[in-house]
Design a protein around this nucleic acid. Structure first.
Lengths: 341, 341
DNA sequence: TTGTAAGCGTTATCAC
DNA sequence: GTGATAACGCTTACAA
């Protein structure tokens, strides 16, 4: 208990049995008497035995761990997704190793190596904003380590993806803004090599087209959607001769900071003079006044679905290396920032 | 590359060397020629070799991993702390395994076992609200696995703690509310078996005493400080014959929901009729209108300090099993929810 | 039903 | 400076 942890050999010695019997008993093998199992379990508990996962994993070549890479654990969407992942994983006997890329490619590469070095049995990833090369993920493919992407996935990858219909959600947001009377609608977009920002942009574009509104490229503000970008975007839009009647931001963070900026630095009323909408339904959207119209993504459901899919693949219960796309329903949340009665 | 990952034995065969030499070369042992090291490193890169951490950890009895237990990764304070921990840990060659207890004792116990089973070399923990028994953590002590607590620590534990001065911070918040003219100040408190809630309560109490104000037990609302508790607390206080002129909540979440409730369901003005203050400086506090007065805890600094201390202990660079308390400065952030000009 | 023995990939202790 | 060998704690054919 003090010098070196207790092992199955200690239990074996204690009960005058062989360590292999202990191993089988603890793993509930049918080849051990119920009575023996009882004795072993009792002794194990008494001695304070705890399995050494490194040893077991090395032997079985199965770490019983799944790796998770997300851009930011502090974002509500991702921490919800992680909660969903954890629920499913623990239930299925897997541990979870969480990494954050901070939306930085280099860190994502380091994360991927770390997960690989730990020989995770599967990877759940939502890629960084900076990621345009995918060799670090390709490796898992090469080793036949299942990978499931959620929210953000690499282009042309032959893996399962769990997403919402970003195109449709963005279409609905834009349509709503149009129906509230906005003719000139700006869009804050993230880098469009990422599916989510491309699809949100396309949904926005399609809605404009369907309602016979021109897409003014000057109203599309490309950025990284950080808080600062929201401020810069707002400044930029307010500086235009013909400033827009609405802003649809591809995430909440930039929408919120733009909204705050406008409230503090202009005489424009929200939603009267300018309507605003974000994306993800993060907690602050229901705290700001007026509430921010947004899209609820149900991170927890996405996480659960992704983990279930991954574990199915790990267990080899799926014939072809699944390439399907699992689409989780999302919901437009209309609040005061856009609703004009 | 396809069947079974490449090992040092593959490299050895490739270079007609022994695997022990490969191991030494990769670990930069002085007992290998620079030239050989070069060859080995080159071959390793070519073959796509990656170390198997389970194998190395089993052999060395050192997992190069530190475990982290927090109540919620979604809370800004904790996700900031985790970022700080990661920075220091990766820099020092440690990986990080993150668990969340969801403020639930049973989950915390499961987390502790999971970390132990992975043979983490050290543990950073901030205990759950429900935790009053500490056997699951005592185990790490028994095995001489260093443990450093941050923010929330168990009573009477002989471990290093990284905290802010909660007593002083709460004192300053309360004093500020008093100076803004409030005579009757309510307090939302978490369970006071936890240091942070006890200290915040005591700071509040002391400030009242120092300013000759009576502590009215009816104004102390004991709860778990969740969003719902903020609403219930506000309802309760508004129902009193003599409702208070200020609320000091021991966290931001309850303060924010109380504030929203009061704004929507009463004619009281904030801060005119009732001033409000929270604790932690979470993002929403600067988004709500008026801004919520709070205390900035600098989670990142706390995380960094805790990780540094832990790694020092892991390396055995500390003579006595440190019991000191590291106090990180905190800052009172005065905003419109309490400031009456 | 239980015991024996080999091996997972690595590192450490010997030799040479 | 390099090679052989054993061992870390566990699982799993194969024997008994």
């Amino acid at each position: 208990m003090k010098k070196g942890t207790v092992t199955i050999h200690d239990i074996a010695r204690h009960l005058s049995l062989d360590s292999s019997t202990i191993s089988r008993a603890l793993n509930d093998s049918p080849r051990v008497t119920v009575k023996t199992k009882e004795r072993v379990r009792k002794a194990a508990a008494e001695l304070g035995y705890r399995p050494n996962l490194m040893a077991a994993g090395l032997r079985t070549q199965r770490s019983k761990t799944i790796g998770v890479i997300v851009p930011w654990i502090s974002r509500h969407f991702f921490s919800s997704a992680i909660s969903g992942i954890e629920q499913v994983a623990y239930q299925e006997g897997f541990r979870v190793m969480i990494c954050q890329s901070h939306d930085d490619y280099d860190r994502e590469v380091v994360n991927a190596f770390a997960l690989f070095d730990n020989r995770v049995e599967g990877v759940l990833a939502s890629i960084a904003m900076d990621t345009t090369s995918f060799d670090h993920l390709q490796r898992f493919k090469d080793e036949h380590t299942p990978t499931v992407f959620f929210d953000r996935y690499p282009p042309g990858i032959e893996s399962c993806q769990v997403v919402i219909d970003d195109f449709d959600a963005a279409y609905r947001v834009t349509e709503h803004l149009i129906q509230q009377g906005s003719k000139r609608i700006a869009h804050f977009s993230g880098p469009r090599h990422l599916n989510i920002y491309r699809d949100r942009y396309e949904g926005y574009k399609k809605a404009l087209a369907d309602y016979d509104l021109a897409l003014d490229p000057a109203l599309v503000f490309d950025c990284r959607l950080l808080a600062d970008d929201g401020i810069k975007g707002a400044q930029y839009l307010l500086s235009l001769d013909n400033s827009p009647g609405a802003i649809f931001s591809a995430n909440d963070l930039a929408a919120l900071s733009a909204m705050r900026y406008i409230q503090k630095n202009s005489r424009l009323s929200i939603p009267g003079d300018i309507a605003i909408a974000g994306f993800s339904n993060s907690p602050s959207t229901s705290i700001i006044e007026p509430g921010l119209t947004t899209v609820d993504q149900s991170g927890e459901e996405i996480g659960k679905a992704a983990a279930k899919q991954l574990i199915t693949e790990i267990r080899g219960e799926v014939d072809t290396l699944a390439q399907e796309q699992i689409v989780i329903p999302s919901k437009l949340i209309i609040r005061g920032s856009s609703y004009k009665q």
